[in-house]
């Protein structure tokens, strides 16, 4: 079964073909990484899937439902969650309150004027904080948490909606190297345990090769390779475009001394 299906989506900005006919599919429990140099079109692809941008052509199917033209909030209700490159959280709340607010939002009663907001979901919020390893910080205001912890709270906020598909834009950006592995391990555990498909972009190759089940390599808007980490690492086209530069190094050195 497929939780996300992207068929042949394209997006052009002025003279630049940012995304050129990209297709992919994602299964529950799967960790799929999209990598590529800056300007390869990863962010645009993410925004096409996330609903921030409409594609020029192609389609996006979330959990079997046509979602190509749906706004962000409607995609969320189909089961898509998201984390952002720079963590998006509720800064004026404590961690506990923020997760309770996320649960309220996910349960969909935003116009209730006189019920109590905090309390009904307290136990559930505590459980989510525990799941991301932040139960100690429940009473701490989000605005005073260290950035690595903010990212974990953000993950708990995304999980509050019990997503079946999680988009993560550079999940380890801005984190200390030691925290990165731990976060990615946590995410993989969540994907496996909740049966959630995770699509992520990442700069940190260690995280990609250690935690992705499959890798999609984009260069100039198009997918040049896709497959298991070992296969991608060995792919000559990938080595040339992105990872290795064996031939180039020789050329550069020759230029320098020539």
């Amino acid at each position: 079964m497929t939780i996300l299906l992207v068929e042949n989506v394209s997006k052009r900005f002025g003279g630049v073909q940012a995304v050129a006919g990209v297709s992919l599919s994602l299964a529950p429990q799967e960790m799929l990484a999209v990598i590529g140099p800056n300007g390869a079109g990863k962010s645009t692809l993410f925004n096409l899937i996330g609903g921030q941008l409409p594609p020029d052509s192609g389609r996006v199917v979330i959990a079997g439902r046509e979602a190509t033209r749906l706004p962000v909030a409607a995609r969320a209700r189909l089961g898509m969650g998201r984390t952002f490159q720079i963590a998006e959280t509720f800064r004026s709340f404590t961690a506990q309150q923020a997760v309770e607010a996320a649960l309220l939002a996910a349960r969909g009663a935003p116009f209730r004027l006189f019920a109590r907001a905090f309390g009904p979901h307290a136990a559930e919020a505590r459980a989510l904080l525990a799941e991301v390893g932040m139960e100690e910080a429940a009473a701490t205001p989000v605005s005073t948490l260290a950035y690595g912890d903010v990212k974990r709270v953000e993950l708990a906020l995304a999980l509050a909606a019990a997503p079946r598909l999680l988009l993560m834009d550079e999940p380890t950006a801005g984190m200390a190297p030691a925290e990165r592995g731990a976060l990615m391990r946590l995410v993989r555990g969540l994907a496996r345990g909740r049966g959630m498909g995770v699509l992520f972009t990442e700069h940190d190759m260690d995280s990609v090769f250690a935690f992705a089940d499959r890798i999609l390599v984009m260069v100039r808007g198009a997918v040049i390779a896709a497959g298991a980490p070992e296969a991608v690492r060995a792919d000559p086209a990938v080595r040339e475009a992105y990872l290795g530069k064996a031939g180039l190094a020789a050329a550069l050195r020759a230029r320098r001394h020539g």
């Binding site: 909030a73 969320a76 996320a102 907001a117």
Partner: peptide, 19 residues
């Protein structure tokens, strides 16, 4: 109440509220 709290949440982060 949920309305006031979620309004403030959306003020803190519109992308998160939409997501």
């Amino acid at each position: 109440a949920p309305f006031g709290v979620l309004l403030r949440a959306a003020r803190d982060s519109e992308p998160r509220a939409l997501a």
